[in-house]
């Protein structure tokens, strides 16, 4: 499987990525690739370096080693807002919702790249500024409907349930029409129903051609929806492949002490 992956259509490629904090190697020499419309999951025990890896890919941390390219262009260490312009978007493990805004405004914020213009036009509320804002609002309402939050549009975001906030973050991330979406534990803290909703949502987004890079603890979900899985342990990649291959991998089973990976394997 790995060998047959077509490098021509690679959307995101990560080569030899690494970072240290205070002399400790949090992530070391990790490489993998993501193709358009593919769902790639990064799994591993707690503290394996998954979120750190995400933070490097999305420009929040500056990698200490290795390179990242997006659509064939090197983007290593590029600032998040520049990555957003190149089609990368993400959600966060511990929610980063704009608390004091309404749900609708949170979603509109996702359209920043489409709606932004000159600050003078905004101060004077010139027709162009209003037109851009209106278009963004329409887009945001459509997105909210897609994640089933249309009814909550005018509520203050801080008052939403956890599962709804997770979906709101995905909506906000989708607003910039990314080519690749990084989801950091989208189902963490959600109940079974909410998890299933998010599960469907992810599959739907991938079906529309957007590549998805996923960090998730819910093994059932990972095994069910992933096309490809990268397994990290102690900051290093210990295995990679399709769900069935990975769940049979002895190194992976050892890393997870058997139990979790086995149940995951049953579902694959």
């Amino acid at each position: 499987m790995t060998a047959s992956r077509d490098t021509q259509t690679t959307l995101l490629s990560v080569e030899g990525l690494g970072i240290s904090f205070g002399g400790l190697k949090a992530v070391n020499d990790v490489s993998f690739a993501v193709k358009p419309g593919e769902i790639v999951s990064v799994i591993g025990p707690n503290g394996a370096g998954k979120t750190t890896l995400f933070n490097m890919i999305s420009g929040v941390y500056q990698p200490g080693a290795g390179r990242i390219s997006l659509s064939g262009e090197e983007v290593t260490g590029m600032e998040p807002h520049l990555l957003a312009r190149r089609g990368m978007s993400r959600t966060f493990q511990n929610l980063q919702i704009f608390q004091s805004m309404s749900v609708l405004e949170n979603a509109i914020s996702g359209f920043h790249l489409q709606e932004r213009g000159s600050v003078l036009a905004d101060l004077l509320s010139l027709p162009g500024s209003r037109r851009r804002a209106k278009a963004a609002e329409e887009g945001a309402r459509k997105l909210l409907a897609r994640v089933r939050l249309a009814e909550a549009a005018d509520r203050e975001a801080g008052n939403l349930s956890y599962g709804s906030l997770k979906r709101l973050e995905i909506a906000r991330a989708m607003a910039s029409q990314p080519k690749i979406l990084l989801l950091d534990e989208p189902a963490a803290g959600c109940n079974a129903v909410e998890t299933e909703e998010i599960d469907h949502l992810i599959a739907e987004i991938a079906a529309s051609g957007v590549a998805i890079l996923l960090v998730e603890h819910d093994m059932k979900m990972v095994m069910r929806i992933s096309n490809h899985i990268v397994v990290l342990d102690h900051g290093e990649k210990i295995a990679e492949g399709d769900p069935a291959t990975v769940s049979r991998d002895p190194a992976v089973i050892a890393a997870y002490l058997g139990a979790e990976a086995q149940t995951g394997g049953d579902h694959a």
Partner: peptide, 18 residues
């Protein structure tokens, strides 16, 4: 909106392109 977004969460504002 971009200003209020970066007030709410700077890192999230960056990732939506602010």
């Amino acid at each position: 909106r971009a200003l209020r977004a970066l007030h709410g969460s700077e890192v999230a504002a960056r990732t939506v392109g602010v």
